[in-house]
Design a protein around this nucleic acid. Structure first.
Lengths: 266, 266
DNA sequence: CGAATCTTTGAGTGCGCTCAATGTCGGTGG
DNA sequence: CCACCGACATTGAGCGCACTCAAAGATTCG
């Protein structure tokens, strides 16, 4: 590599691939979480090449053979499944520090297609080598199990809103989920960009593009959010939580609110 | 082996707990899949007590601390989550050979409640001991990862029908799913009992109890199924697949059917 | 500037929900 | 034995939320 311009993605020592995880700003959200420096070093050694993925490019397609997991280094992705009749369901949106491809382990082929929502970069993690490392770094294995389990919980949360919630509640839940995840990454929980199109949001929430558009308009008109194209600000966080949980934490229903607060802190 | 008659549930040598997995009729569907006899023996040693669970009894509740996974030995279970506003989503129905509790690994507490649909029995698998065994039996670890990944896929399938399908299509998908799973266990794929109430089915499919009842009536009136209480027979399997996939494999649309058949075999 | 894509907004419709009544079954006690 | 009860299931009537269809506006990109 002889290029001179380097973005935030750059790594020092060319080639050998040292300190990939150790220097990554998201190591506490990603696979290395809870590992010692020396263990991180061993993980570094098996991390494959970084891979740039341009906006709208497929990181992998459904039914492709599985070789590697991918950790998002920066950028955003969407994962989706299409069934025989052509119906698409977006199964999730992934951001920096999150792991992609765990659905592919079971059958040795990707169950979801993965597409970049913007120019992004992932770290390739050859699964065969990761498995070897599990034997040597038990803490890594334990954390990997936690990550997979959390992926299961994430999907179950999606089932919960797809099966039970009205459009308004789904959408508020979605916005709060983004808010929380950005906060965990040190970004503003109240002001962020929607990296995905209205259609993607709809395909995730089980709603149409028109419904998403109407929800955005209505939330804006109510003064709960501000939207300009894909720029979004949550103006009334409490109202969002009220919508998402269905619980009114206000003077109107103080008794019930207290009960909930106690439960939440228990 | 000196006994002549053995129920699926019986175990010989009292106490010590030998040959639990080795003699289990579902070992090829469960954790021991692909293990050698000696490896199964090692797995046997860590399997905790068997636990009987009566109909409507909780195997575990939401937010309980996590210690063990459970393998269903016989009987049926449902797993469900309830959110703050009291909305319930059934996340799945489990039968013999299936593993319960993987959602609890991530946070160390059960994300789902588990209730027996009939008198049932599970094998308790202390997770800490299972983790120790992973280090000694790599094949077990690999298979465990496959199981967790398949659980992720299962949840994603649920997202697909909850987000995209009409009531009729969801219900046909549900019936075919049961059919396939019973077939894999050596039972009839076309005749089985619905172990769960209409309400449970509704809470799983994101529909009301009335809708489920109407669907059953309509499917019966159309001659596609026979229902008597909870006894169900699939009379027209092809029609069920047509409904579930949205693809008509019939003379009416031969061209499209051919395309699908090719794709399915590719 | 024009073409393509994405988004917003409106009008009307229909699927599945809500509410309500009736039916069926198993259990319990007189 | 029947009467009664509670749980579960079925069926009907009417409604409303989100969908479909349609058109216009906004934005991006060549």
């Amino acid at each position: 590599m002889t290029t001179t311009i380097r973005l935030a993605t750059s790594n020092d020592a060319a080639g050998a691939g040292q300190s990939k995880c150790g220097m990554c700003g998201f190591k506490n959200l990603c696979l290395p979480q809870g590992l010692t420096d020396s263990e991180i070093g061993r993980l570094d050694k098996i991390i494959g090449r970084r891979r740039r993925v341009e906006r709208d490019e497929n990181l992998c397609r459904m039914e492709q053979p599985f070789h590697s997991l991918y950790a998002v280094r920066f950028g955003h992705f969407k994962t989706s499944r299409v069934n025989h009749s052509g119906q698409q369901q977006i199964t999730g949106f992934q951001m920096a520090g999150e792991l992609l491809g765990m659905d592919a382990i079971g059958n040795g082929q990707h169950a979801c297609g993965v597409v970049a929502l913007e120019d992004s970069e992932v770290c390739e993690i050859p699964f065969a080598r990761l498995q070897e490392l599990f034997a040597e770094v038990p803490q890594l294995l334990r954390h990997f199990h936690r990550i997979m389990s959390q992926e299961i919980m994430r999907e179950q949360n999606a089932m919960l809103f797809l099966g039970n919630m009205r459009a308004e509640q789904r959408f508020a839940t979605f916005l709060l989920n983004l808010s929380t995840r950005y906060a965990a990454r040190g970004y503003s929980p109240s002001s962020f960009q929607l990296r995905m199109s209205r259609e993607d949001i709809g395909d995730y929430l089980g709603l149409t593009i028109e419904s998403i558009s109407r929800l955005l308009s209505r939330f804006r008109a109510s003064g709960w959010i501000a939207v300009d194209k894909r720029e979004l600000r949550i103006l009334d966080h409490a109202k969002m939580e009220e919508l998402a949980t269905g619980i009114v934490l206000a003077a109107a229903a103080p008794a019930r609110a207290q009960i909930f607060m106690q439960a939440a802190h228990a």
